[in-house]
């Protein structure tokens, strides 16, 4: 499994190298491939190649989750922007604890990062199976407590 992972890391690194250099002559491409292999070899010797840093297995499930997340981000960014330019600054900051139903650490990270990425809510700390969230408004907190995002992340975790 780790061997397969190393190979996929080599390929992603090489793709990144091609993207940055933009040279497609055989000699330079060989050099790029060699340097990606060398980097992964060093990384394996340093024992820093692991499943978490390169979560291939989440690929398919995430694709369905992203469009929903982006729409959600745009909506809440709009709400927060309106709050900011409002002359009276009608905010009601709250701290709340949200249950996580995800099993794997990667799923929990996806959920916590989704919360942070959505303007108006920030995951402050993770305790056991709960996330401590700071919300800008009471309404945003209630939205999150409804658990829609939690269900979607769990579904995307299950699908992969």
């Amino acid at each position: 499994m780790l061997r397969f992972h190393s190979i996929s890391v080599v390929f992603s690194l090489f793709a990144f190298w091609l993207l940055l250099s933009g040279y497609f002559t055989p000699f330079l491409m060989t050099l790029g491939l060699l340097s990606s292999v060398a980097v992964v070899w060093f990384a394996r010797r340093m024992d820093v190649v692991d499943q978490e840093g390169h979560p291939l297995h989440l690929g398919r499930g995430v694709m369905g989750y992203w469009p929903w997340l982006i729409v959600e981000i745009v909506k809440s960014a709009w709400t927060v922007s309106k709050l900011i330019v409002h002359p009276h600054l009608p905010i009601s900051p709250t701290m709340l604890r949200v249950k996580m139903s995800q099993q794997s650490p990667v799923g929990q990270v996806v959920y916590a990062n989704s919360i942070t990425l959505t303007p108006g809510t920030i995951s402050v700390a993770i305790e056991e199976d709960e996330i401590l969230v700071h919300a800008l408004t009471r309404a945003g907190a209630d939205d999150l407590a409804g658990g829609d995002m939690d269900r979607r992340v769990t579904a995307c975790e299950a699908r992969s």
């Binding site: 927060v80 303007p119 800008l136």
Partner: peptide
Amino acid sequence: MHAASVIDTL
């Protein structure tokens, strides 16, 4: 922080 995340996202 909420305000800063508007910059980062939208």
